[in-house]
Amino acid sequence: MRNILAIAGKELRAYFHSPIAYVVMTIWAALTGFAFYLHLMVYSEEMFYMQGRGGMGAPPINLNDVIIRPMLEGFLLIVLLFLTPVITMRLFAEEKRSGSIELLLTSPVTDLEIILGKYLGALTLLVSLMVLTFVYVGLLFLYGNPDAKPVIAGALGMLLFGAALLSIGMWISTFSKNQIIAGAVTLAVLLLMYILVWLRGVATGPVGQFIAGLSLGIHIESFAKGVIDVGDLLYYVSVIFLGIFLTARSVDALKGRP
């Protein structure tokens, strides 16, 4: 555990010593902040409109449906798809390029400790992004009266979604010495896994439906509705474990090479 924490601390320091952490956090805060603002405008427009009609003839609207759910289900996920490769691309690529991977692999630590340490460092940065977002959500609680349960479920869903992306990104980062390549390939793979959901509408056979079910985006829908579905939870946990397992295989294979 001590080794994992030492490596996680080193990764986190690297994020904050370089512009990466600040750039990622700024982009995230700006985009989610603007999206929040737009959703809020729509909400007040509708409230205004409904008030004008005396609240008659329209279904009641609430903060969850108009602001929180659309953000969790849609835009925030897209932003995460683009930002997580920036977080993971350096994890192994940079160590391979500079040769510092030799230090890690000749130290009395196991490969798994190295991998979990790096993953934990990246995950901590992701959690700081989530914290930024929930400042906005906190504002809603301060001035409005949203339902807390879907917010908590949604936050959990988004964290799991992001954690799954990081795990895949970390694995891809083991293949290249070039961060840009690692990042670009990660983005492509993540986008592909995300749009698999479109198969749901076109594929008729069970195989097509199964592949659609592997989509990264599908499984967050239940969380966004405020339901913690065990199947969806297991899906994300499995992707995280698979990514870590594949990273371990790949790090082991690194050792056979000159």
Partner: peptide, 8 residues
């Protein structure tokens, strides 16, 4: 090549 982290 010394296995150092240039940022540290």
């Amino acid at each position: 090549n010394p296995p150092v982290y240039p940022d540290m």
